[in-house]
Simulated scan of single mutants.
Amino acid sequence: MATNRRIQSLEGLRGIMIFLIVLSHMEFLKYCNFGHAYELYWHNPTIAVDYFFMLSGFGMMFSFLKHGGVSAVGGRCTPDVY
């Protein structure tokens, strides 16, 4: 039985960032009764995209190090230092 060793709180934060990014692409919301809240807060997803990439990179590095530095194709990652 394989154990799932993901960090659930970081997966949840990634999900929230994805939701904010998708919400920013919904242009029809600026015509609803939100006032200027959509244009001020939700239309610019720059911070959400930055956090999404940061959390994704951390998750990939965490997975890589968890497996002992062995890549998915079977090669070992060692620096070429002489």
Rank of each mutant, 00 (worst) to 15 (best):
L55N: 08
N44W: 08
T46H: 06
G57P: 00
F64Y: 06
Y41S: 04
V70K: 15
V70Q: 11
H43D: 07
S71Y: 02
G68T: 01
I16T: 05
A37M: 09
S63N: 10
V73W: 04
Y31V: 07
V73Y: 09
R14N: 12
G12R: 03
V73E: 11
R14Y: 01
M61E: 10
L13T: 11
I47H: 14
T78R: 15
P45G: 04
F53V: 09
M54S: 11
N33F: 04
S9M: 07
G59V: 02
S71P: 01
G68S: 00
T46G: 09
I7D: 11
Q8I: 13
R76N: 13
Y51C: 09
Y31G: 12
S24K: 05
L23D: 01
L55F: 14
M61N: 08
D80T: 12
H43E: 08
S9A: 13
S24F: 01
T46E: 11
P45M: 05
F52G: 00
D50A: 15
E11V: 08
M26F: 03
G35Y: 01
A72R: 04
G12K: 00
H25G: 15
A37L: 11
M60P: 00
F19I: 01
I16V: 05
A37P: 05
S63A: 13
C77W: 15
G74M: 05
V81T: 11
L23P: 00
M60A: 14
M1D: 12
F62L: 04
E39W: 01
L55H: 01
A2K: 13
N33A: 10
G12C: 00
M17V: 07
L23S: 08
V73A: 08
M17N: 13
G15H: 08
I7K: 03
F28N: 07
D50M: 15
I7P: 00
A37F: 13
P79T: 10
C32E: 07
A48W: 04
A48Q: 02
I21M: 08
M54K: 11
M1E: 08
M26P: 00
L23Y: 04
M54T: 13
A72D: 08
H36D: 15
G35M: 02
N33V: 05
L10H: 09
F28P: 03
G57K: 03
G35V: 02
L29G: 02
E27Y: 04
Y38K: 03
Y41C: 09
L55V: 06
F62H: 07
C77T: 14
V70P: 04
G68Y: 02
F62V: 04
G68D: 01
F19K: 05
Y82Q: 15
R76K: 10
F34I: 10
F52D: 04
A37E: 09
L40F: 08
F34L: 14
P79G: 12
L20W: 06
K30G: 04
K66L: 13
Y41K: 08
Y38D: 03
L20P: 01
G35L: 02
M1G: 14
G75V: 10
L10R: 10
H67Y: 07
V22P: 00
V81Q: 12
